[in-house]
Design a protein around this nucleic acid. Sequence first.
RNA 1: GCACCCGUAGUUCAACGGAUAGAAUGACGGCCUCCGAAGCCGUAGAUACAGGUUCGAUUCCUGUCGGGUGCACCA
Length: 613
Amino acid sequence: MKTRGCKPLARVAKCGILRAPLYSMSTDSFPNLISQRLQAAVKAVCDEASLPEGFTVDVVPATNPQFGDYQSNAALQLSKSLRQSPRDVAARLSEAFDAGDLCDPPTVAGPGFINFRLSASVLAGRTAALLGDDRLGVPRTEHPKTIVIDFSAPNIAKPMHVGHIRSTILGDCLTRTARFLGHTVVTDNHIGDWGTQFGMVLWAWKNLRDDAALAADPVGELLRLYRVVNERQKSDDSLRDTCKAELVKLQQGDTENLEIWRQCVSLSRGGLERIYEQLDITFDHWLGESAYNGALSPLVDRLLAEGIATASDGAICIFSDGRGDPKSDPFLIFRDDAWQANPFLIRKSDGGFLYATTDLATVDHRLREFHADALWYVVGAPQQSHFDQLFAVCRRRGITAELEFISFGSILGKDRKMLRTRSGETVQLADVLSEARERALKVIEEKNPGLDDDEKTDIARAIGIGSVKYAELSQHRMTDYVFDWDTMLSLKGNTAPYLINAYVRTRSIFRRLGTDFQSCGELVLTEPTERALALKLLQYGETVPGILTGFRPNLLCSYLFELASAYHGFFEECPVLRSEGAIRESRLALCELTGRVLRHGLGLLGIQPVERM
RNA sequence: GCACCCGUAGUUCAACGGAUAGAAUGACGGCCUCCGAAGCCGUAGAUACAGGUUCGAUUCCUGUCGGGUGCACCA
């Protein structure tokens, strides 16, 4: 029994649908400005007919600060069609390049890289401008879309376990990011509140329920009931049939079963909401599978009428349309030395509907009611073939909305196997979160015993929960990652506590100063660490939009970690409060901006920093 | 069997086809009369294997070997 959220890439639907980009780079971003000037140089140096088709000048941050701030590989790309050595092309381009006051004259290095170093005045001016920008340099998208994001989606018959962390945290971060970039995002928790497992829960409720336990710990008792019946039915065919019968009664509208179902859903939802509250995650809708009960039968009829679905062995299926390569046809499978049908089953021979059916109905609803341009599914990689089929059916039905399967890898224990408790059970998410808070509290007691108890508890919550989220988001979503308390709660390295600590240090300056940041005049950036920090701050606006290409919050995490390191480097080299005049003001501005960007970036990750720790 | 995903320092992770493959952690060596040392600086260490495309490959293609996942009435 799986739920959507429980296991391990974005897979684009196999049909090419033209789509607008998800974000816009600010037109006055450094790469853009340099690129425009370099483009002009290209025009001046070579005639357009000799350019490769679709040639665009790319400018990217330099790989190593010793080379400069930004670099372009344009000369390397052009050398072939111009029939000149890359170094010569680079030399001519940099000669023709009009740097203006944007940067120093470009330099040529290596096989033909052109390196750019921003001028001190531009750097200082932009940094000062950042102070007055409440978007911190992040541009709004020029192509806002309505995006429905399907994430978390636990099965309601049992509490969430660690497997749901990835979908839940990743989905929430993508939601926050897409909204900030200017998209309209609708979040929908598509809970599993209707499937086969409810047959088991119904039987267990009737036969095994312990009312005292239920009153004391409803979620725990539901979990116990589920575990017991699940274990028994594995080896007991007649029990399995009995459970199926309970399910059929439920689906036929039996009042007793419906009432029990309502109670279970309500109890379970209470437990889920407590977890989401701790995680600071909310949903616009909780349209579970049961919300589509009425839509399934007409949907199947329509698919039959349209000739997309056909009857087979008493069931209703969607088969391959026979177009295209069998290898990439989600409705075919190679078995027993031949390509055979691998249908998308939408109605069982007993009349029951399936996951596939509700998913199709859900697509219809989201397109119709939310006017969605894009549907994103944050679901583990094992369900890839299901989504391949689902999306293919949507295309056959003429749906042109963007469909994204945003998948991810598994969470492993230290033994590199699926994470389990010592007794071999799945690890409950609620337990993970409370352990995170306890462990964080212990560290705080050690490091800063002087804080009062309430504050310690708040800080422990922020750091504990933040650590769990950051551990998840800082990895490429496809990698199977090892869940390790010591690593994620460590104060060193690329962790939430390290970043929050960097933020705390920016705040500590102003606590000591006794006032909040006051606006300042022109900035003076002279030390290398000041320059490096300012450049990093200015790159926030280039970093955030990139999260949505490939759906990769880990890029933001890397950025924030580099920013924090740049801040610490600056902090070592440059006294702030003990400096004077314009230098002091400039340094205070750097502290303020670092604090703002860290707070904002962590916010996009769903992590709330604290003022003290 | 067939399909998909993944193989990078001892370990955990990075790298739109670009320079000497970056970090972190662990190990070793430095730095607090100085704004939070929960920090900073330095040293040592890696692209599974074999071909191909390319001016250039960790990245793209083919094959091999290893690991994971999925494959008809569950979700």
